[in-house]
Amino acid sequence: MKESLFMGKVTAAMTHEMKNVLAIISEAAGLAQDLLGPSDESVFPLKNRFLNIMGKIDNQVTRGSDILGVLNYFSHVPDDEQRQENLDEVLNQTLFLSRKISRLNGVDLVTEQTDSPVILDYNPLKSRMLLYRMLEFLAPLVGKGSEIMLRAWRFHDGSAGVCFTVKASASSTFSLTEMLNGSSWGALETEFRTEKASIGPSGNNSLMLSF
């Protein structure tokens, strides 16, 4: 706990520094655009190319800023050992943080929002860790072109969970249950049990994570 708090504190400070770096890049690119704006192409023939480049810098600043925003939020996650959270928001943040998993495996990660909020009362760092772990396990298993859809779930007893539904790519079909048989699924089940969570099949191509 102390270690994760320390990690979070340092990460939060660094995201703040990085925001300042992006702010300077953004203003410098903006100033260049301002200076080029009124100039005539006959005086500066590369004007449009430069404006185009400045536009790309702008887009990347926005992208970097969005990433830092989520990373900053994430860095504060260990501040509470237990917290009530809207599970839809937790899923959205986790998917944002899992973009690398998605990109490396060529798998689409999507969420389906619930009609009414499902509240999760759990350790916020652990919930994200378990969700991330599931995606890390599932993405290479289902393979390129597939989709993993996450949906917040409320059980009859009021507890919360997440349903993972996988869809094969247009050119293939698969059975998730069969895939799990040849995988390290058993080890993953044990890992989740030690975190007081459980995972199990829920229909043909779905898995349920219960917190």
Partner: peptide, 15 residues
Amino acid sequence: DEKEFVMTLAERLGM
């Protein structure tokens, strides 16, 4: 306290 930020933004606002 970020001097480069201040100077660049000041120039843009001044323009």
